[in-house]
Design a protein around this nucleic acid. Structure first.
Length: 164
DNA sequence: GCCAACGTTGGC
DNA sequence: GCCAACGTTGGC
């Protein structure tokens, strides 16, 4: 799941959210997803206790920052109905809601941030083959194989690759 | 149902 | 701030 750790204004509201923000909050809803495929993954593909890689995007060093866990199955994203909310969507009808969200809880930060660049340099590794993060960067909620999850968590325990 | 125009994402 | 990739919209 991607979040933006740096200041980001949406309709004049700062929607930044980092792994440290999740750590401070303990749990958080994942409101604001306004893409159908990402919604479907949350609604149909995620269940309580699933582990989540927390990715920092749109920032100086994009990459995987930590681990979270799903703690509530998908439910209606009510922020879409609130005209004063930055994620308001007039097309989501309360009688037939368009958008859904899950809740996640903080598990831990990785020992170090695993930069996207590093993962790109390792994309020929079988564990990362076909990983959505590397093949279609723009999806904000993506499936992660068990192999990719393990690979990235183990990678975070190693020293960063030396710069070229 | 096609597809051009337009909007968004997100790395750089 | 640029812009490529790609998702969404809407005319036909």
């Amino acid at each position: 799941m991607k979040a933006e750790p740096d200041t980001r204004l949406v309709n004049s509201v700062d929607v930044r959210f980092s792994i440290d923000d999740l750590a401070a909050a303990g749990t958080s809803s994942w409101e604001g997803v306004r893409n159908y495929e990402a919604r479907n993954i949350m609604r149909d593909g995620m269940r309580v206790d699933d582990l989540v890689l927390f990715y920092h995007s749109n920032c100086k060093v994009p990459g995987v920052a930590g681990i979270a866990r799903v703690c509530r199955n998908a439910y209606v994203d009510h922020t879409a109905f609130d005209v004063s909310h930055p994620y308001y969507d007039a097309k989501s009808d309360p009688a037939n809601p368009r958008w859904f969200m899950v809740d996640v809880e903080f598990v831990r930060k990785l020992d170090r941030l695993v930069p996207l660049k590093e993962l790109q340099s390792l994309k020929s590794q079988p564990a990362l083959s076909g990983m959505a993060l590397l093949t279609r960067g723009r999806l904000s909620v993506q499936p992660v194989s068990a192999a990719a999850y393990e690979f990235i968590v183990e990678l975070s325990k190693t020293s960063p690759a030396a710069p070229e």
